[in-house]
Simulated scan of single mutants.
Amino acid sequence: MSDGLATALAGGDRELLLGTIRDVPDYPKPGVTFKDITPLLADPRAFSLLTDALAAAVSRHGATAVAGLEARGFILAAPAAVRAGVGFVPVRKSGKLPGETVTEEYELEYGTAEIELHVDAVGPGDRVLVIDDVLATGGTADASVRLIRRTGAEVVGVSVLLELGFLGGRDRLTATLDGVPLEALITI
């Protein structure tokens, strides 16, 4: 386990970020507590701190591109890519990208879903850092890593704002990542 992202936070920065993440009980269904990052995004200090930490991860891993996972991963990955001086690549739900795409299916608790990437978004020689907001069960992150690798690009890491450790997403990703660092700013 790499903790480079978490060690990027100084002093009370972790508490600042955690304090701007709102719990929404029983959303999207009863028994689930949704982690809402919109208050963090509305706080310029917290959002800038998060962007700096993610941009530092881009540089630390030598990434040449950042892949953001739909939809909240877009909001975090795009400014990190800009701040680090690399390109942003959206990984979207199936049917959302125009042009030729490559698709990867993954399992949900209640069925399957697909994500896609433009076939020419990344390829051999590209070093991609995957960014998302929350790592829960790991299904989307797992599928995105497999999808990016199918283009011939190298995945150099997965970075998330918040890891819900009790859901086991890290364990699910271990085999897929095969030594590639998985970093979370905050783990609960």
Results as ranks from 00 to 15, higher is better:
Leu135Arg: 06
Leu76His: 00
Val119Thr: 13
Ile21Val: 15
Tyr110Asn: 08
Pro28Phe: 09
Gly4Asn: 15
Ile21Met: 12
Ala53Ile: 06
Ala10Arg: 15
Thr151Trp: 05
Leu182Ser: 02
Ala81Tyr: 00
Ile21Trp: 06
Ala71Cys: 05
Ala6Cys: 06
Ala71Glu: 12
Thr101Asp: 03
Ala55Met: 05
Val58Arg: 06
Asp142Tyr: 00
Gly125Thr: 05
Leu147Cys: 10
Glu116His: 07
Arg146Phe: 07
Ala77Arg: 09
Thr7Leu: 10
Arg149Ile: 03
Ala56Gly: 08
Val66Thr: 08
Gly11Ser: 12
Ala184Leu: 11
Lys96Thr: 02
Leu108Asn: 05
Ala184Gly: 14
Glu183Ile: 02
Asp3Ile: 10
Gly11Val: 09
Val102Tyr: 01
Asp120His: 09
Asp43Trp: 00
Pro124Asn: 04
Ile188Phe: 07
Arg22Lys: 15
Asp26Arg: 14
Leu177Gln: 11
Arg45Lys: 15
Ala67Ser: 10
Leu9Asp: 13
Ala57Thr: 11
Ala42Cys: 09
Ile148Trp: 12
Ile75Lys: 07
Arg172Pro: 01
Val180Phe: 10
Ala56Asp: 13
Gly168Thr: 09
Gly152Ser: 13
Ser59Tyr: 04
Asp178Lys: 07
Ala53Cys: 09
Leu173Cys: 05
Asp178Arg: 06
Ile148Asn: 10
Thr38Ala: 11
Thr101Val: 14
Pro28Val: 14
His61Ile: 01
Glu154Pro: 07
Pro44Met: 12
Ala42Phe: 00
Val32Glu: 13
Lys93His: 00
Ala84His: 03
Leu9Cys: 12
Val89Gly: 01
Thr51Asn: 04
Phe88Thr: 02
Ala175Val: 06
Val24Met: 14
Val86Asp: 02
Arg172Leu: 14
Leu40Tyr: 01
Gly87Met: 00
Ala65Met: 06
Asp171Ala: 13
Gly11Asp: 15
Gly62Ile: 07
Val122Asn: 09
Ile115Lys: 02
Ser94Arg: 10
Val158Tyr: 00
Gly99Leu: 01
Arg22Ala: 15
Pro98Thr: 04
Leu167Glu: 11
Leu173Arg: 06
Gly168Ile: 11
Pro39Glu: 13
Ile75Tyr: 08
Ala65His: 05
Tyr110Lys: 03
Gly4Glu: 13
Leu147Lys: 10
Ala53Tyr: 08
Ala141Phe: 05
Val122Ile: 08
Asp13Ile: 10
Leu41Phe: 13
Ala65Thr: 04
Ala153Glu: 05
Thr112Trp: 02
Thr151Tyr: 04
Arg22Trp: 14
Val32Asp: 11
Val160Arg: 02
Leu16Asn: 10
Ala81Lys: 02
Ala71Pro: 00
Pro28Tyr: 13
Lys29Asp: 14
Ala141Gly: 14
Ala175Arg: 15
